[in-house]
Structures are given as C-alpha cells and as structure tokens.
Simulated assay, not measured.
Amino acid sequence: MTEIKHDNDGHKGAFNLYVDGKKAGSMTYTSAGDDKFIIDHTEVGEEFGGKGLAKKLVFEGARYARENGKKVIPLCTYAKATFDKNKEIQDVLA
C-alpha cells in the first residue's frame, strides 16, 4: 500500500511517500509568495525505483496546487520533465 503525507511549515513543505509503512521517497518545495510554490527536489529510494512513485509525487503536488489555487514552478529536473510530458497537470504551471 502506498501513502503520501504532506508536511508544510508555512514556507517549506514536502510530500513524503510511504510504501507499506516505509519511506520510499519525497518531493520538496518552497513557497514563492501566497499563490506559487517551487518544486526543488524529487527523490525515490533506489529499492523503489522504476515503479512510477516519483511521478505520483509530482501528480500529488499538482493536485495540491489545483485544490489550493496555487501555481507550480518546477525547478527540479524530474518534476519539470514530468510536467512537460503530462498535459493533464500543466494547468497548474506558473
């Protein structure tokens, strides 16, 4: 079972992904004003690679942005590539 938990301290945040209770990866971001955030890093542990988990993190970030009226600036190369390849999440790009 996979679960994504969102942590946010008001300025920085992370989406942490767990597989069967074990942390498998995370995507971190920094607020850029009230209406934007910058995805600065996406990482999945080696043993969890190749399962689409990093993509799940980026999609979760897009869902969060959409639900909270925010736009995304993907500085992380993985997140940027994922936005470029998936038109269904491009509506939240800044």
Rank of each mutant, 00 (worst) to 15 (best):
residue 47 E to T: 14
residue 23 K to V: 08
residue 35 D to H: 15
residue 16 N to Q: 12
residue 19 V to S: 11
residue 9 D to I: 00
residue 18 Y to N: 07
residue 48 F to K: 00
residue 51 K to T: 04
residue 81 A to F: 09
residue 32 A to S: 15
residue 11 H to C: 10
residue 36 K to M: 14
residue 57 L to T: 01
residue 36 K to L: 14
residue 24 A to C: 07
residue 69 G to W: 03
residue 86 N to A: 07
residue 58 V to T: 11
residue 36 K to P: 05
residue 50 G to A: 09
residue 39 I to T: 03
residue 75 L to T: 10
residue 42 T to K: 03
residue 3 E to A: 15
residue 62 A to C: 08
residue 29 Y to Q: 00
residue 6 H to P: 10
residue 62 A to H: 02
residue 91 D to P: 12
residue 15 F to M: 05
residue 63 R to F: 07
residue 87 K to R: 14
residue 53 L to E: 05
residue 7 D to N: 14
residue 33 G to W: 00
residue 52 G to T: 01
residue 86 N to W: 03
residue 44 V to Y: 00
residue 67 E to Y: 01
residue 46 E to H: 09
residue 58 V to M: 08
residue 17 L to N: 11
residue 7 D to F: 11
residue 7 D to P: 03
residue 16 N to H: 13
residue 87 K to A: 15
residue 86 N to K: 04
residue 43 E to K: 08
residue 57 L to I: 01
residue 70 K to I: 00
residue 38 I to E: 10
residue 79 A to K: 01
residue 11 H to F: 14
residue 35 D to M: 10
residue 65 A to G: 04
residue 30 T to A: 13
residue 87 K to G: 10
residue 35 D to I: 09
residue 53 L to F: 06
residue 57 L to F: 00
residue 63 R to V: 11
residue 51 K to L: 03
residue 19 V to K: 12
residue 89 I to N: 08
residue 75 L to N: 13
residue 36 K to T: 10
residue 49 G to I: 04
